[in-house]
Amino acid sequence: MDKEKLVNEAKAVFSREDVACLIGYGKDSIGFRVSPIFIRTRDEADQLFFSPLCSLSLVNYLTLEKGVLLEGNKETGGEKIAIVARGCDSRALIQLFAERGIPREQVVILGVPCRGTIDLKKIEGKFPDARNCTEVTEAEGMYYIRFDNESHEVPKEELLADHCKHCAFPNPLVYDVLLEDLVDSKGAAYSDIEEMEKMALEERHEYWKDKFARCLRCYACRNACPLCYCDDCILERVSPQWVNRSVNLSENLMFHLARSYHLAGRCAGCGECERVCPVNLPLMLLNRKLEKDIKNIFEYTAGSNLDDKPLFASFNPKDPNDFIF
């Protein structure tokens, strides 16, 4: 994306709106790393950038410690928070607005149509020693990766993050400023989920056993999730203690059942849970399985419409009934 356009729009937002803080992407000094950055004045906006490396979602910062973001308002008096949002982020935002996690009026959205982002684990695996990646651009199904004195071409498929491969909402669905022309979108694909559904029950159980046994219970999947923002999380409760603190297969399964179920009809598909996992658990499979079922049966897609009532706060008398005595 044109950095100049991004920076200028960000500056314009600061001039026009009552903004205390802008959350955006900044290039890290090392390798392929991209960091969330918090811009509090017009001039700082020059640090902003966007590239296919921007795989992290910034939406969770809105609810993490809102007071911190508003600290900038001592200088500007601003009460609003601006955020750079891709398609999936905009879905998370819609869901947050619908659940009244944060009021729509408080957020200024700089929408970025997204062509998919690069999985850091994949690119670092391919270039393990890359110290100074200067630029990554995309054109016609290839990524062009430039270092100080060399450049490489890699087919997009090879580096694209898994959840981006299945993305049906690359364009922001809600925004105040649109930073680029909209991109083509395709329908959601669930072929991998359907493959898993064909497995025998025991086989699928073995598959997940192997995965959950490795879980460290570091809570990164929960904390990185833009929609896990409860002040009092059921996974942390002590009385009653729904999920024991022991790290073993049973408790880990309880943990992941609770986590994924709480995102049923809410998951925005940003893939943060999977991206942050230090032991590579395929958590998006759980989220997408529920997303698929909910879409097929209840014709509901989380974060697709500002006026939708939350899935589990609504019903249809014609909902499936044949599993009930």
Binding site: L64, V68, E71, L216, A220, R222, N223, A224
Partner: peptide
């Protein structure tokens, strides 16, 4: 310190690894 911790999401990865 506040600046340094701005992007931390309070997960346990650093301590558990």
């Amino acid at each position: 310190w506040r600046e340094l911790s701005g992007k931390c999401i309070s997960c346990g990865i650093c301590t558990y690894t």
